[in-house]
């Protein structure tokens, strides 16, 4: 099993390199640094000097791959590719356009993101599983039918509606919680309640429906018939037999997103003014701060690959068939 995990780890390396190459191509090859400078400086005030200064400030004035003017290792290291892409591998993200260190920003901003994302993830999982179990228990009845109708309706509603509707109703009309903002420590709770509820509500539709299909698939298996033939009650069958098998796809499907929780939620954070990584990305996109976007792309990929690794690991934990291989 250790060999298996090691192999998965090694497999991650070429993928990260691939991600790196893609982002590099996207940011520096499709458009030259000149184009970016022109855009950032605005079309009117562009002078060659201003462009050069803009590039020099960001370190974009170097050659892309090979620095013919430098000697020795610097021929390769004193280039945009090395400075901007290879350095990502040691999590050296450099500075944002506003001069702040991106790595430092990420470290401070990930906490508010987690404070929002973890409750949404855990409560969402619990709510969806419970709801789906209920639908599976009442399968082929009107409760199930209308439950599915509610799910389909809920998943047809835009996330933006949940946020805007929630803000309007709860914050504006009823004034129960502040519309937006954030405070560190325990005070964060009053700012987080609404985003968490909105986040959970937005996921119920698709989540419950998906879990319901998994449950129903398991319920139709032969071992469930065996369990019933033993004289077990329907609830025992559902909880001891069906749930335990269904949890394998559900848990492993959930595990893959755990690392990406760090990335926060783009929309929710920016709507509710939570200073997490999600709103950081949005701000960077709107300010066209390529350094930040590039760093976040790389960080996101690292976390996703970590999620894949965790998924493989979690299979070995929950599924005896994999564990004993």
């Amino acid at each position: 099993m250790i060999a298996y995990i090691t192999r998965r780890f090694l497999y991650a390396i070429p993928i990260l390199i691939g991600v790196n190459v893609i982002t590099f191509a996207l940011f520096f090859v499709v458009n030259t640094p000149e184009d970016m400078a022109n855009l950032a400086l605005g079309a009117k005030r562009v002078t060659p000097e201003a462009v050069e200064r803009w590039k020099a400030e960001r370190g974009y004035d170097k050659p892309l791959f090979v620095n013919a003017e430098a000697d020795g290792a610097a021929r390769l290291t004193d280039t945009i590719f090395f400075q901007k892409s290879i350095r990502l591998f040691v999590f050296d993200f450099g500075n944002a356009d506003d001069g702040r260190n991106i790595g430092h920003e990420i470290r401070t901003r990930m906490w508010p993101s987690l404070a929002l994302a973890i409750p949404v993830f855990l409560i969402g999982l619990a709510v969806n599983i419970t709801f789906a179990l209920m639908l599976a228990f009442f399968r082929a009845t009107y409760i199930d039918f209308w439950g599915v109708v509610v799910c389909v309706a809920m998943m047809s509603i835009s996330t933006l509606f949940y946020i805007i509707g929630g803000q309007y109703l709860v914050s504006k009309t009823w004034s129960l919680v502040p519309i937006s903002g954030y405070a560190p420590g325990i005070d964060a709770a009053k700012f987080l309640i609404l985003p968490v509820v909105v986040g959970v509500a937005g996921g119920i539709g698709s989540g419950s429906r998906w879990y319901r299909t998994i449950f129903l698939e398991e319920i139709n298996r032969d071992y469930v018939r065996t369990a019933r033939a033993k004289g077990l009650s329907e609830l025992t069958v559902l909880f001891r037999h069906v749930l335990k098998n269904a949890m394998i796809p559900i848990l492993t499907g959930a595990v893959v997103v755990i690392p990406t929780l760090f990335m926060g939620s783009l929309i929710t954070e920016s709507f509710f003014g939570i200073p997490g990584l999600g709103s950081y990305v949005i701000d960077a996109i709107q300010a066209q701060d390529f350094a930040v976007v590039r760093s976040m792309v790389f960080l996101g990929s690292v976390l996703y690959i970590l999620g894949l690794l965790l998924t493989d690991l979690s299979y070995t934990l929950v599924d005896p068939r994999v564990r004993f291989e």
Binding site: L26, T260, I305
Partner: peptide, 10 residues
């Protein structure tokens, strides 16, 4: 593995 929204944004 590249977060979809970020890839699109970029």
């Amino acid at each position: 593995s590249i977060p979809g929204v970020l890839l699109i944004a970029a």
